[in-house]
Amino acid sequence: MKKVLAMMVSLFMMAAIFSGCGQKSSTDDSLEKVKKAGVLLVGMHDDYPPMEFRNEGDEKVGFEVDLAKELGKKMGVKIKFVSNAWDGIFLALNSKKFDVIMSTVSITDERKKTMLFSEPIVYGGNAIFVKADNTSIKNEKDFPGKTIGCEAGSTAQDIVSKISGLRDLKKYNAAPDAFIDLKNGRISAIVTDPMVGDYYSAKEKGVYKRLKSTLNKEPIGAAFRKNDKALRDEFNKEFNALNKDGTLSKLSTKWFGYDIYK
């Protein structure tokens, strides 16, 4: 009886081992697929200067556009940009419309629950921009009774919506529209990433100004599907290589006017 029992236990253990081996077939082939295809599909909401936007020739340009191209060279693959509205960009990633999102994505604990992130590419956050002649707003404590603008679906929307007493929180799908409304007095302030607002301030000197007060500081990175660790790790490796060889500093000076990596 003991021999039979021992044999049954052995058979059960062998079945469990083979079953476990079978489960390992769902390995992470995210990097392998990209290498085999020879193309990295990059999802992007291309209306957020100077990070990613379209120039007068309708070409995608910007800091993250250039960064993606440099990463493609390092990885030995071509880069194909896929435009997507911001409010559906995370769903599009998980439905495999593209391999990675490079579109000024703030790294948050909530987003980490459903996505993998690269190391921080830059540090953004939520700065406050007003018209240059505005003296009524010194910080977010002056927001009550006023109409404030932000990008729809952004962390700025989450933060500003918690401030009580606003006349209105106007949400925009495109940053240029928000700054046009600010210039024309339709809103009192915009809450957005500092480098974005600084771009508009430099582009139209004397029209906008950034306040000293900021609502928070946020790391910005590339977003990957939760199981695509191999692709994310390759991204990090090549990103660090671009940092070491000075490429990132050159791109930063080109788009921001200074080296954010020093």
Rank of each mutant, 00 (worst) to 15 (best):
M1W: 13
K2F: 01
V9T: 02
M13C: 13
F18A: 02
S19H: 03
C21A: 11
C21Q: 10
K24D: 05
S30Y: 10
K33I: 09
K33S: 08
L40A: 00
L41E: 12
P49C: 00
P50F: 00
F53Y: 10
F53Q: 03
D58E: 15
G72L: 11
K74Q: 07
M75I: 03
I79D: 04
N84Y: 12
L91K: 05
K97G: 13
S103K: 06
I107R: 15
D109Y: 07
R111M: 14
K112Y: 08
E119Q: 13
G124E: 12
G124F: 00
G125V: 00
D133A: 08
K138W: 09
F143L: 02
S154L: 02
D158W: 14
I159S: 09
R167A: 08
D168V: 06
L169C: 03
Y172S: 06
N173S: 15
N173F: 11
A174K: 14
P176W: 01
P176S: 03
P176R: 00
L182T: 08
K183F: 03
N184S: 13
G185E: 02
R186F: 02
I187Q: 04
S188W: 10
D193G: 04
D198C: 05
K209F: 00
R210T: 01
E218W: 12
E218V: 14
A230E: 15
E234D: 05
F239D: 10
K244H: 07
D245I: 09
K254N: 05
K254Y: 04
F256H: 01
F256I: 00
G257P: 05
